[in-house]
């Protein structure tokens, strides 16, 4: 075999570079740390979690551990867990839609503001809340939405209501706080995409007889679908995995999968069942995301999305 390659190597015009070393661009090496992080802090822990979810115990500290489907059976046997899954997805979906409805006009305004000061002010308004912690913001919402909070006290004193509205310790309060926390992610993602839409496309549509609404529906909205998709996925993923906000704002009324997982890990020490819950959450949210991607992709006129 060696004599086969010998003549090729002896050709004087052969490239100077050693043929044995495959060309790897410098940027590929720069991805290394990110890849390492991903493997060590995501793939590995997720693998362990998935493995524990199909074992009867923890093989590191117990003996006689065998494979089992008991954790998954438990999830599907007790409707409490299924309801928690549905609640998690419902909260995620409503939060996403509300963030989109609130965030889109803001992002559009930001993308189309030509004055630098105006843009800077809007950007500050969007980012500033992100600089305060989630817990702080959640507590701020509690002072507003409590039975004796600002809103209820005001409405009561004006005589508009006779008893306090139930604004928190339920899904409503949870969603209000989640939307507030995650709207900036939606706005920043959308602003980039909307800002790249050529304004002359909108002008062309107008000159062809489309009023502002039609122009928005026919041109601006379809062209911002990639941003809507990316922003929605971000907000959805963040809100279905939120723990602090549902815990503080939901009270006893709200039970989401992350809260269940925390209970299983922190109180029941049932790592196997916690793992099963985690796998179910991941699987279901992946299905939701893929379906969403496909539906939006079809609206975008068959163009490949994300």
């Amino acid at each position: 075999m060696a004599d086969l390659s010998a003549p090729a190597l002896s050709v004087p015009a052969a490239p100077v570079l050693s043929p044995r070393r495959p060309a790897v661009s410098a940027i590929a090496w720069a991805v290394g740390p990110a890849l390492l992080l991903f493997v060590v802090f995501f793939i590995l822990p997720f693998g362990v979690m998935a493995l524990l979810s199909v074992l009867t115990g923890n093989p590191a500290i117990q003996s006689g551990v065998t494979f089992t489907a008991q954790h998954y059976e438990r999830f599907f046997e007790d409707s409490l867990y299924f309801e928690a899954l549905v609640a998690t997805l419902r909260i995620g979906a409503i939060t996403t839609v509300a963030s989109l409805v609130i965030g889109y006009p803001l992002a559009h305004l930001m993308a189309r503001t030509h004055s630098r000061i105006g843009h800077a002010l809007l950007l500050m308004a969007v980012i500033a809340p992100m600089l305060t912690g989630i817990v702080v913001r959640t507590f701020a919402w509690m002072t507003l939405l409590q039975d004796r909070g600002v809103i209820n006290t005001t409405l009561l004193s004006w005589g508009l209501i006779s008893s306090p509205l139930k604004l928190m310790y339920n899904e409503f309060g949870t969603i209000v706080a989640l939307v507030h926390i995650y709207v900036p992610f939606m706005v920043l993602t959308l602003t980039g995409v909307i800002g790249r839409i050529d304004e002359r496309l909108e002008q062309a549509a107008r000159s062809l007889g489309a009023n502002r609404t039609r122009t928005f529906l026919e041109v601006t909205l379809p062209l911002s679908l990639p941003g809507i998709l990316a922003g929605s996925l971000l907000v959805f993923a963040l809100s279905i995995s939120a723990y602090v906000t549902p815990f503080l704002m939901g009270g006893t009324d709200v039970l989401t999968l992350p809260m269940l997982i925390y209970q299983q890990v922190g109180a029941s020490f049932n790592l196997g069942f916690a793992g099963a819950l985690g796998v179910v959450l991941l699987a279901v949210s992946l299905i939701v995301i893929i379906a969403y991607n496909n539906v939006l992709g079809r609206f975008a006129g068959g163009e490949k999305m994300a």
Binding site: R200, L201, Q203, A204, A205, S207, G209, L223, E303
Partner: peptide, 14 residues
Amino acid sequence: DMGMVFQSYALFPH
């Protein structure tokens, strides 16, 4: 009701 042709053409990419 005017036709307009832009320098960048402004065709709808989608």
